[in-house]
């Protein structure tokens, strides 16, 4: 009996602290009106609208969407998952940057050290690599899904073109990252891949020279692709993603129903 009273008293104290915190100015300045985290954020049609409208989410989502558009079987969440993988790759990529030098031979030894000396180093590297492969697949499947729904038809023509650019940038991001481990797999896969670019009619040699920063792959190529991979291409792809998401909303949200 005394035990129950004591735990009851503790619960009351915790609850009191919780409600005090949730009514504080600090708390209410962080969570804008309508947020379920707020003391006054109960479930109501108005608060459901505010959750989106009063939030940075409003840049991505409208307050309401067509009912068929939320069906998992329609979009399969492929676009959203591609975006999520991009964020995940950014986070894990930043982690990897702390332990990596884009020079020969340090690049390779840094990776070896990362795998054995750094806490969660192997896990994060694995996530970065598999995540990149999965992102190529989800982006490609997203394109396929959009085609089969005819979702590129007016007024969404241009957003399809932006999507193709995003697919190309995704491939380039993955390809530039491929060289960075500086092992046999990286070196020769990139050699084969960039040899193809050398077959470009008329400008073949120039394209190849610009791509690998010389007549053959060297440590200079490593630095060049590192900068492309961690800075230039992410910068470009973020701009196109912003346009892509903006156009999804401006063109009327998810297409359909069929």
């Amino acid at each position: 009996m005394a035990d129950a009273n004591e735990s009851g008293g503790l619960m009351t104290a915790v609850k009191g602290m919780g409600s005090h915190l949730r009514n504080s100015q600090v708390w209410n300045s962080i969570f804008r009106p309508g947020s379920p985290a707020r003391a006054d954020g109960g479930d109501s049609p108005r608060n459901r609208a505010y959750v989106v409208m009063n939030n940075v989410l409003y840049h991505l989502h409208p307050v309401k969407v067509k009912r068929h558009g939320v069906k998992l079987s329609y979009t399969l969440c492929l676009g959203g998952l591609s975006f999520f993988l991009f964020i995940l790759l950014t986070v894990t990529g930043i982690f990897l940057m702390f332990y990596y030098r884009p020079t020969s031979p340090q690049a390779y030894f840094d990776l070896q050290a990362l795998e054995v000396d750094v806490a969660f180093g192997m896990l994060v590297r694995n996530m970065h690599r598999w995540g990149a492969h999965i992102m190529v697949i989800t982006v490609f499947l997203h394109m396929t899904r959009v085609f089969y729904h005819g979702a590129y038809k007016p007024p969404r023509e241009f957003n399809w073109v932006v999507g193709i650019i995003l697919l190309l940038l995704t491939l380039l991001l993955s390809f530039t990252g491929y060289l960075l481990p500086w092992d046999q797999l990286a070196l020769w896969a990139v050699t084969v891949g960039s040899n193809m670019a050398g077959y470009t009619p008329v400008f073949g040699e120039q394209v190849s020279f610009a791509l690998i920063g010389g007549v053959q792959i060297t440590a200079d190529t490593l630095l060049r692709w590192y900068v492309l991979h961690v800075l230039f291409l992410p910068f470009i792809i973020v701009i196109f993603m912003a346009v892509h998401f903006w156009r999804v909303r401006k063109d009327g949200g998810v297409s359909g129903p069929l």
Partner: peptide, 9 residues
């Protein structure tokens, strides 16, 4: 599944 890391380039 570990990501592959082969011999030095």
């Amino acid at each position: 599944i570990d990501a592959p890391l082969l011999e030095f380039a």
